[in-house]
């Protein structure tokens, strides 16, 4: 039978996803040529990619200007670079990247762009720079009783028709304390409407060890219950405990959100521990990441 012309195949591929396009390049040489064409990858890039790039700055450690991305020989290379190497936007306050599977827009709101209660009081929080982060500064919690962080992002910069999940990206120092058995309350929701709230643990590993110890010492067990201790063991793969990200940071799910894209609004994420109000410290915050739900 006669074959579809390459342009027609490219049109079909551009109606799939970046992941499908990469896989379809293995079908035959004509598919490979169509699947690698600029016509296809231009469709996978967000429509406003040029203006995003032209207003961006490089993410450390890279120092080359992101505008050089626009000179890459193919749109596919540009796309993949934006997946693997986030760029800084909004005066370095947010990082922008693309989800490789779907091409949807992803953001990380830097700690500097979060509202952190006591964040400007050096006895409670300090600002440092760490290698391996996207931003110039990260926030380190020295100690507080009132832990409150809020981040906001305009929904009009998110991809339409997309389920997003928000994550807190953080680390615990060797001397961190106060998070072992104490859940924090997190929420995600549009400003002005009811948000989705849940409880998560920031310190799963030590929490588990502690629980074992506490479980054996019955006297303490009762006390821990009165502090809001949950009797169930943390399970692997649940969303209430932090996971390793593969970049030496941890992340914990704050909640999800469907962005229909038909109205402008502001999405707010919060992390709160003010109920028990005990002293806690040793938390390093890189920011809040918003990416498509898997």
């Amino acid at each position: 039978m006669s074959l579809l012309p390459e342009g027609c195949i490219a049109n079909v591929i551009s109606c799939t996803t970046p992941r499908d396009a990469c896989r379809l390049s293995l079908v035959s040489s004509i598919f490979k040529s169509a699947a690698e064409s600029d016509a296809v990858w231009e469709r996978f890039l967000p429509p406003e990619y040029q203006s995003i790039i032209s207003k961006s700055s490089p993410c450390p450690p890279s120092s080359s200007s992101p505008s050089s991305l626009l000179c890459l020989p193919s749109k596919k290379e540009l796309f993949l670079s934006l997946c693997d190497h986030p760029i800084l936007i909004d005066d370095g306050k947010k990082a922008f990247s693309l989800d490789k599977q779907s091409g949807k827009k992803c953001y990380m709101i830097s700690a500097r762009d979060l509202m952190i209660v006591w964040g400007d009081t050096p006895t409670y929080w300090r600002w440092t720079s760490l290698p391996g982060t996207r931003f110039q500064e990260v926030a380190e919690l020295i100690c507080v009783c009132w832990l409150e962080m809020r981040g906001k992002i305009s929904t009009c910069i998110l991809s339409p028709g997309t389920h997003y999940t928000a994550y807190l990206v953080f680390k615990l120092t060797a001397g961190s304390y106060g998070f072992e058995c104490q859940p924090v309350e997190v929420s995600v929701g549009l400003v002005g409407s009811e948000s989705q709230k849940r409880s998560v643990y920031l310190d799963a590993i030590r929490g588990r060890r502690m629980q074992y110890r506490l479980g054996r010492r019955v006297g303490l067990f009762n006390r821990s219950r009165s502090l809001g201790w949950q009797a169930s063991l943390p399970r692997e793969n649940d969303d209430h405990h932090p996971k390793e990200r593969g970049d030496a940071w941890l992340e914990v799910e704050l909640g999800d959100f469907y962005n229909a894209g038909d109205e402008d609004g502001e999405l707010e994420m919060s992390i709160l521990e003010v109920r028990a109000g005990d002293w806690k410290g040793g938390l390093i915050v890189q920011g809040i990441e918003i990416r498509p739900k898997q």
Partner: peptide, 9 residues
């Protein structure tokens, strides 16, 4: 084009 793309996803 869109119909076929959906069948290939």
């Amino acid at each position: 084009t869109e119909t076929i793309a959906n069948r290939l996803k």
